[in-house]
Design a binder for these strands. Structure first.
Length: 419
RNA sequence: GGAGAGUUCGCCUAGUGGCCGAGGGCGGCGGUCUUGAAAACCGCUAAGGCAGCGAUGUCUUCCAGGGUUCGAAUCCCUGACUCUCCGCCA
């Protein structure tokens, strides 16, 4: 939800943002119209309601004819209150719909354009020279780590079992992420993965992403696609005491995604699956520190990828490829030898006040005034990282070297093919 | 799944139709007193929309949504949630 006051002040800011996203400016104008309509409806209602209250108080104190006249007038007013109130409700509904159609204001500096217009900020680590690399599934099967066939038998396409060392490896990766985050003062959390519609909508996942989301009709609950959802909704309708500092949480949970519309893409292995695990960073932050905090989250992600000894690059996602809540997004992409290209493993978004405004999460500033917080999120550790670990650290015989940081958690420095 | 109880201002609680946006206690903040602190006493103590440069005004909010009424925290209906007991499952 964008800031209507800012919109009134500077509508062109939002028009420019829409252009950068490659989206229509008309939704901005519709919102401006809806805002004006609501305010004038509200003014009409308040005038009538105010008179009703004033006269209503005189009724019990008056007598005879005077009372009869008052009652007649207040009766009229009651009807007017009803119609003007209905007009306000209608105008508010239109405003709400118009709000949903306008995505967050893009942060200045974000590249304009679509999916392919990202800017590479840096490339870190040497791309390994592996002649005839095996892909992660081939490796995973040799190691007895990944079982896609039985995943499909039991649950269908894009489901899998992590077995043996695969299960342990995932656990170790998540655990390493948790350790790092706790070291940096994040509050660790295990969140619910089933949430109510309002929580889903509040975080902005029922808009363009609605078809991505699993829904349990019998219970009117959604399965979350990321723990960003329960983390963002955690402080819904609260006023936080931030003391001028970001408040950071780290939640790990299973994530569920329908992957609708991705037929034929990444059908091999566990790159794109319906269910995976992820440790997600989330920060509630005073807005003036949000940009800085965003870079810090990116820093945590990079530090983590370095621990996994993965070559990666950082891209600044183009405006058109941002989610509707995000003002800016940086992705870390790890190198995949089997594909000879970089693939996304982490993603951090600055949602500024967009998400918090919808969820009504505020804080008290230094003067004690309540203001909307900024929210930010970022991936720390996830199942998909197993793909990059297996492929980048593979040896000619199919064994896989274990990055130093994971060795204590796995109790070994080499994963060896079984049988 | 069955039966019952409940949801009021940070917390506890009062409030069965107008004097209630709402009293009391606790907590919090400020002050008097004190060398300092405690105690005592005094005062303040919600969030939000709209209009206004501002003082301020106005409206909304007593779980939510409908209804009755000139007027609803209070009466009626529906729903959500919480708690207790029973059953069932783990």
């Amino acid at each position: 939800m964008i800031d209507l006051r800012l919109l009134r002040e500077d509508p062109d800011l939002f028009r420019a943002s829409q252009r950068a996203r490659g989206e229509s400016e008309s939704s901005v104008d519709r919102l401006i119209g809806a805002d004006e309509a609501r305010r004038s409806a509200l003014t009409r209602f308040e005038a009538v309601r105010s008179e009703q209250k004033t006269l209503g108080k005189q009724v019990p104190r008056s007598q005879g004819e005077e009372k009869a006249a008052l009652l007649e007038r207040t009766k009229e007013l009651a009807a007017e209150v009803k119609t003007t109130e209905a007009a306000v409700a209608e105008a508010e509904e239109e405003l709400r719909l118009a709000q949903l159609a306008v995505p967050n204001l893009v942060e200045s500096g974000a590249p304009a354009g679509g999916e392919d217009d990202y800017v590479v900020l840096k490339e870190i680590g040497a791309i390994p020279d592996i002649p005839e690399p095996r892909d992660h599934l081939a490796l995973g099967e040799m190691l007895g780590a990944i079982d896609m066939e039985r995943g499909a038998k039991v649950s269908g396409a894009r489901f899998y079992y992590l077995t043996g060392i695969g299960a342990l490896l995932e656990n170790a990766v998540l655990q390493l992420g948790i350790q790092q985050a706790v070291e940096y003062g994040f509050t660790p959390m295990v969140p619910p993965v089933l949430v109510k519609p309002e929580s889903m909508e509040g975080t902005g996942f029922l808009g363009a992403h609605a078809s991505e989301v699993y829904y349990l009709q019998n219970d009117d609950l959604f399965l979350v696609g990321t723990s960003e959802v329960p983390l963002a909704a955690y402080h819904k309708d609260e006023i936080l005491n931030l003391d001028g500092q970001p408040r950071r949480y780290l939640a790990w949970s299973t994530c569920f995604r329908r992957e609708a519309g991705s037929y034929g893409k990444d059908t091999r292995g566990i790159i794109r699956v319906h269910q995976f695990n992820k440790a997600e960073m989330f920060s509630y932050c005073p807005p003036d520190l949000a940009h800085e905090e965003h870079l810090r989250l990116l820093g945590f992600e990079e530090e983590f990828l370095a621990k996994l000894e993965l070559p990666y690059r950082v891209i600044d996602t183009a405006a058109g490829d941002l989610g509707s809540s995000a003002a800016r997004k940086y992705d870390c992409e790890a190198w995949l030898p089997s594909q000879q290209r970089y693939r996304e493993v982490t993603s951090t978004s600055n949602c500024t006040t967009f998400q918090a405004r919808r969820l009504n999460v505020r804080y008290r500033d230094a003067e004690g005034k309540t203001q909307t917080v900024s929210t930010l999120n970022g991936t720390l550790a996830t199942t998909r990282m197993l793909v990059a670990i297996l492929e980048n650290h593979q040896q000619p015989d199919g064994s896989v070297r274990v990055p130093k940081a994971l060795q204590p958690l796995l109790g070994r420095d080499l994963l060896e093919p079984v049988a």
